[in-house]
């Protein structure tokens, strides 16, 4: 092997990236050529210097405790939330169900029926007005408005999804 070929592969040899034959050829050349051996030693020294310098970086006092405190405090909150959402107690479920069902029961009251009937009448008038108005808008405009509405809807669904993902409960559960 010539020195030029050796220089080309010197770093790959140091990094163990050569195949068996190339490695043998390099080892053979290095054992005979003092100039290439010096270059190889320089590379080895750089590696040793880096390791030696990093291994001696002083550790800040109390770092372990600070890290452990932050790890466990964060995780405790997450675990409580996960337990709460995963296995809700009977009375919590009861309260939640009554909160959801109570408004439905109220709908049966005669006053609610009257209010609903009034609302229905008004919504019909409102719907009729919208229909007349939409007839007056040029088709291209109404198409554009429809598309814009779809885009806004898509964007808001994306943001809601992102928000849900950011909730810690999800992180703990995933």
């Amino acid at each position: 092997m010539m020195c030029e070929a050796c220089w080309e592969h010197l770093e790959a040899y140091l990094d163990g990236e050569l195949d068996g034959n190339e490695e043998k050829a390099m080892a053979g050349h290095l054992s005979e050529c003092s100039s290439c051996q010096t270059q190889f030693s320089e590379l080895e020294t750089v590696r040793q210097d880096i390791a030696w310098a990093i291994e001696n970086i002083p550790l800040p006092a109390g770092l372990e405790n600070r890290v452990l405190a932050s790890v466990f405090s964060g995780s405790c909150i997450l675990r409580e939330t996960t337990l709460d959402s995963g296995r809700p107690s009977a009375w919590k479920t009861g309260i939640l169900l009554s909160l959801v069902l109570a408004p439905l029961l109220l709908l049966l009251h005669p006053l609610s029926v009257r209010v609903l009937s009034l609302g229905y009448g008004m919504s019909r008038v409102f719907g009729r007005g919208l229909y007349v108005l939409s007839g007056a808008i040029p088709p291209a405009w109404s198409m554009g408005l429809g598309l814009a509405g779809l885009v806004v809807m898509g964007l808001s669904m994306y943001f809601i999804w992102k928000l849900v993902q950011a909730i810690p409960v999800r992180e703990a559960a995933s």
């Binding site: 990093i54 291994e55 970086i57 550790l59 800040p60 770092l63 372990e64 890290v67 452990l68 790890v71 466990f72």
Partner: peptide, 22 residues
Amino acid sequence: DEEAFAALVKLHMPYVYRTAFA
């Protein structure tokens, strides 16, 4: 096991911190 995790932190902190510092 939180005690085991603390031991893991203790064992690997020097490497993690020094690598981050580098």
